[in-house]
Design a protein around this nucleic acid. Structure first.
Lengths: 146, 146
DNA sequence: TGATTATACTTGACTGAGTCAAGTAATTGT
DNA sequence: ACAATTACTTGACTCAGTCAAGTATAATCA
């Protein structure tokens, strides 16, 4: 079986899609938050009141780095941090009202850039695009190695 | 037209594919070269004897950063640099034999990691995967904005 | 021609993301 | 109670990448 052409094709797609992702990231970066910060904010938003440890387990991020990002958010009053009564080593993290606004802004920037990506596509084409994406995900998303 | 679900789907795919690219990059990074270095080496290899300026135009890379990467390669004897006789501001860059070996090694690492990606797919599935990738590229790869 | 402007590359100084390891305090297990 | 583990913090650091000034050469044009 000759997969060498497949390798070239996949690498070409990877180069192409790296550029797509890069462009989309640029728009989010304009918000003033780094990608790491945006991811952390998303996790705090999504996982309700949670501990730093929970975020660490989801994201692939250094413990110290995360600690600094969170405390930076606390200083900017985007995240509220209260010591857990049941385990005083941990803190409950959640977005403040201001944090939710910041998150919504990030969310909206991300959505806008995706919309831009689709702007020259018909509804039919958008449907096709998403079906192709689903198919790729299904093909490549196998379990951690059995 | 409701594109809000499409936005969510595309973002989900982006998160997924970011991870795929991250994993593939890891294997190349194990070579000891940074991604920037690998890209520069590729350009020197691909564009025969060329000037730093040519690489700058292809890659999106800082002039000073590129200069350092190239001189680092020269110091490691991976790249040969000779002053252009027709324009003494420029230098002709090309890979040395050692540089070609380093490049082949990088190339082989990249190919291996792609093979790993395909390892659990049938030939049929690999064909499908590539068709989906082509389709996505065609849908999204429009001219710079008319 | 000679003066100005532009180009190719270099270099030093810097920023900021991310890493590492040691330290503190609280918890768990024996 | 004591040892080992866990959650978070902090300081010191590395390294990728940026910025701007500097040098040498080439192109432009009055």
């Amino acid at each position: 079986m000759d997969r060498s052409q497949a390798i070239l094709d996949i690498r070409a797609f990877n180069r192409f899609y790296t550029n797509v992702l890069f462009l989309l990231d640029q728009s989010v970066l304009k918000s003033g938050y780094s990608l790491a910060e945006a991811r952390v904010m998303y996790e705090v938003k999504a996982n309700g009141p949670c501990a730093a440890r929970d975020i660490m387990n989801r994201l692939n991020i250094d413990e110290g780095y995360l600690s600094r990002i969170l405390n930076h958010f606390v200083a900017k009053e985007l995240v509220l941090k209260t010591q857990s009564p049941t385990d005083k080593r941990q803190y409950h993290l959640r977005l403040s009202a201001r944090g939710r606004r910041a998150y919504d802004m990030l969310e909206s920037l991300a959505n806008q850039s995706i919309q831009g990506l689709m702007s020259h596509l018909s509804d039919q084409e958008v449907g096709d695009l998403i079906r192709h994406m689903h198919s790729i995900t299904e093909l490549l998303d196998h379990e951690p190695t059995e």
